[in-house]
Write a protein that binds this DNA or RNA. Structure first.
Lengths: 204, 204
DNA sequence: GCTCGTAGGGGTACGCCGTACACCTACGAG
DNA sequence: CTCGTAGGTGTACGGCGTACCCCTACGAGC
């Protein structure tokens, strides 16, 4: 009845995400987000309970534009799971600075839940249920979020590769050799390659 | 020549880890670590450049007691990889509060590198090399670290399961059903089950 | 159209954090 | 015994999350 709200949660999330995209995850704070919105830091507390909730809003926004409609049912189920994995990966990659955030809060965002539901539908259609379906979904979660994380703060692949290739070759002969090989493998190949390995072992 | 050092990096790491184990990861700071050692906060800077290096020491210590000697060579290669994965998982699980730390700095700790080297030896013995070996190692990294993370701040499995089971069943029918099923699956089964799926698809 | 209760938003302040800097001092080499 | 060096302390600064208090712009009820 008195004085209407001037902000939507989504506008708030957009401002915070703008800070992260522009200045990095470390720059995200109640103060910087407030400044981005042209208001005082304490004003934000009319919209979120604490910083953690602000982060959740950001992740909601990132995962909110993952397409979670079922992929065309005429493709084999493995390809449909691949499509879902790629959609998630692409959405997260759109905000590289926010990767740790997105994965940390993934299971609390509506988009993450919808993703799981759609993947489960595909797995169920492939004949999985009961404990096997539990394990399969969890393995997919583990692989996808682990792979995305590796990709964006990478030990192997990415800029960390050179550091590993430069290690003493006598103590880590295979690791240095593998790091050199890694240069010839594109990120998409790595992600999809590993995913296909997992999917190959997952069905039947 | 003047005045000898009173601390070893390992004692420093032990103190920091004690803080984390006792009071949680959020309690870790230069100040609390210094207090644990009975010295002033600034004194730590004679031993580490900054907080990041302190964290790295902690992770070094956690991953340092992963057994990275090659598992007995008479077992099938998949079982040997399993053994390596379990060793890493067990070492990390010994300090549950430090899980995010351990995984974030894994690739910068000597123990993590030795782990990779040993796993690569097994994979090489199984006939993998070149790009296939790159993808296999990376997939294992992704799965293992993703699974450990899920296990310790779990969406599916763990205390988060009930929250998911309590979601509106009409919007998330499969997810809630799967969360209920998840109660009957032990963490070890989940971890090993997913790992075996990945390993099944990984060779040949 | 005026009043009034309420919720939006600002300001100040506290106790944390990491760490730059200046200082004192215990020690071992000569 | 002296002296240079490096270990360790204390102080201080800017930034953080946020508790608390206040002012005020607004919409509902008359």
């Amino acid at each position: 009845m008195p004085r209407p709200r001037s902000l939507t949660p989504d506008r708030l999330a957009a401002a915070a995400l703008a800070v992260v995209d522009r200045d990095g995850l470390a720059a995200l704070s109640m103060r910087t987000t407030a400044k981005e919105l042209g208001m005082s830091p304490m004003g934000l507390y009319r919209y979120v309970a604490d910083r953690d909730e602000l982060e959740r809003l950001v992740v909601d926004r990132i995962l909110g534009d993952v397409d979670t409609t079922p992929p065309p049912g005429d493709a084999p189920w493995r390809e449909r799971v691949e499509a879902m994995a790629c959609r998630l990966r692409d959405a997260v990659a759109r905000h590289p600075e926010a990767v740790p955030l997105a994965l940390a809060h993934r299971h609390r965002a509506a988009g993450g839940l919808r993703w799981s539901e759609t993947v489960l539908a595909i797995l169920t259609g492939a004949g999985l249920d009961g404990p096997r379906r539990v394990v399969a979904l969890r393995a997919l979660h583990a692989y996808v979020s682990g792979a995305i994380q590796l990709e964006h703060r990478g030990p192997l692949s990415g800029p960390g590769t050179e550091a590993i290739a430069a290690l003493p070759g006598d103590r880590f002969p295979l690791l240095t050799a593998t790091a050199r090989d890694a240069g010839g493998v594109a990120p998409d190949e790595e992600f999809l390659g590993g995913l296909r390995m997992l999917l190959r072992g997952l069905g039947d």
